[in-house]
């Protein structure tokens, strides 16, 4: 990271702590803000948060790695997370997954070379009556069909 990026990030985290509080109970909201804005929570960000909340960096890491929505590394521009839980599974999740893999040329758990798309599975989204469902970044898509998947991917380009 460039020095200017570091100081911008530090400033941003300081502001978050000022508005959300410096107690440990503010940890999740702070991490959520960082995740939302940057798409990931870097080692530096974790340590800065730990310092301001007066907890150990490894405890922040423990929290970050516990929750599925937090990530430690850079993420693709479009993070595609397909629900793999039972109701979506019954509604041809496998077919949707294959479509994605074929269209993007990567497997689930991988990122395209241009870092534009990443494929992941996720647990139940609460869209069981409209499965298969997925999230692209934070947006929900439901009632997926292979055809619809192709359309959605085209609309992202």
């Amino acid at each position: 990271m460039l020095a200017s990026e570091v100081s911008a990030l530090n400033e941003e985290i300081q502001e978050l702590v000022q508005t959300l509080g410096n107690g440990r109970q503010a940890l999740m909201p702070i991490l959520q803000h960082i995740q939302r804005k940057h798409g990931y929570i870097s080692a530096h960000a974790q340590q800065e948060v730990a310092r301001l909340l007066k907890i150990h960096p490894v405890e922040v890491d423990g929290v970050v790695t516990f929750y599925a929505f937090f990530r430690k590394g850079r993420r693709a521009k479009y993070n595609i997370r397909l629900c793999q839980t039972i109701s979506c599974d019954l509604m041809n999740k496998d077919g949707i997954a294959k479509t994605f893999e074929r269209e993007l040329g990567i497997k689930f758990g991988e990122v395209t070379k241009d870092e534009k798309y990443s494929l992941e599975f996720i647990s139940c989204l609460g869209m069981c009556d409209q499965g298969p469902a997925m999230l692209i970044n934070n947006e929900v898509y439901t009632n997926l069909t292979p055809r619809k998947v192709v359309d959605i991917l085209n609309s992202l380009k």
Partner: peptide, 9 residues
Amino acid sequence: VGCLEALNR
């Protein structure tokens, strides 16, 4: 000291 913790789940 705080250098060990459970990570992942």
